[in-house]
Simulated assay, not measured.
Amino acid sequence: MHMDLFTIIVEEYDPAIEFFTGVLGFDLVEDSPSLTNDGRPKRWVVVRPPGARTGVLLARADGERQRAAVGDQVAGRVGFFLRTDDFDAAYERMTAAGVEFVTPPRAEPYGRVAVFRDIAGNRWDLLGPA
């Protein structure tokens, strides 16, 4: 068993795809037309880090409740964790691409870490080796 997908609610598909692929370097795995449960058109958009098994389903907010959750899916906590083998290179590349880091890099017993926000405003840890 493994985790296949998790969802991040976004305002619009295309800017989210650009952020995850162009800025973070994820692969666009799928971008297909689909339908909501009540038959309205939507897209099935999946991105994932190169070589990863787990993907991120980018879901456009549908309705007020979902729009209210954009950027606050885990109530302001860090809810997503992106591990890299080369922390400095990833941090420099992401900073140059305009990623908003809300904490500077720091050393922890489990490795190096800096908190950043995705395009929706959700908080992520960028993690690297100690």
Rank of each mutant, 00 (worst) to 15 (best):
A130Y: 10
A97Q: 05
G76Q: 07
F6D: 00
F116I: 01
I9N: 00
T95W: 00
D27E: 15
L58Q: 09
T54G: 02
P49W: 00
R43A: 01
R48F: 02
W44H: 15
A52T: 03
E11L: 10
A89W: 01
F87P: 02
V78R: 05
E92F: 04
A68Q: 15
A96S: 12
V10A: 07
A59E: 11
R117I: 04
E100S: 14
N37I: 06
A107C: 05
F26L: 03
V23K: 15
R40M: 10
G111F: 10
E30N: 14
D86Y: 04
R43K: 13
Y91F: 14
E18T: 13
A96I: 02
F101H: 09
G63T: 09
A107W: 06
P109A: 06
A61L: 07
E11K: 15
L35H: 14
F81S: 09
V115E: 08
R40P: 03
I119G: 11
G22V: 09
D38Q: 11
A130P: 15
L24G: 11
R48W: 04
F6A: 01
P41C: 01
D62R: 14
E92W: 04
R117N: 08
V47D: 00
R40T: 03
I17W: 13
E100C: 07
V78C: 10
L126N: 07
A114I: 01
V102W: 10
R117D: 01
V102R: 14
V74A: 14
R106Y: 06
G79Y: 03
D27C: 08
D27T: 08
P105H: 14
Q73F: 07
V45G: 11
G111R: 12
Y110W: 15
G39Q: 00
L35G: 07
Y110L: 11
T21P: 09
P129T: 13
A89F: 02
F26S: 02
A114E: 00
R83D: 11
F26V: 02
R40L: 12
S32N: 12
E64F: 04
I119Q: 11
L57G: 07
N122E: 03
V70S: 03
R65L: 13
D118K: 03
E64T: 13
L24T: 05
E92Y: 01
G51H: 05
M1E: 06
G55N: 05
R83Y: 13
R117T: 11
R93P: 02
L126R: 13
E30Y: 08
L35W: 09
G51M: 04
N37E: 14
T7G: 05
L5I: 03
Y110C: 09
G121I: 00
K42P: 06
E64R: 14
A96G: 08
F20D: 01
G51Y: 04
D38P: 05
G39C: 00
A90H: 01
K42H: 07
A52G: 07
I8M: 09
F116Q: 00
R106A: 13
R112P: 13
G79I: 00
P104V: 10
P49K: 07
G98Y: 09
A61E: 02
R123H: 14
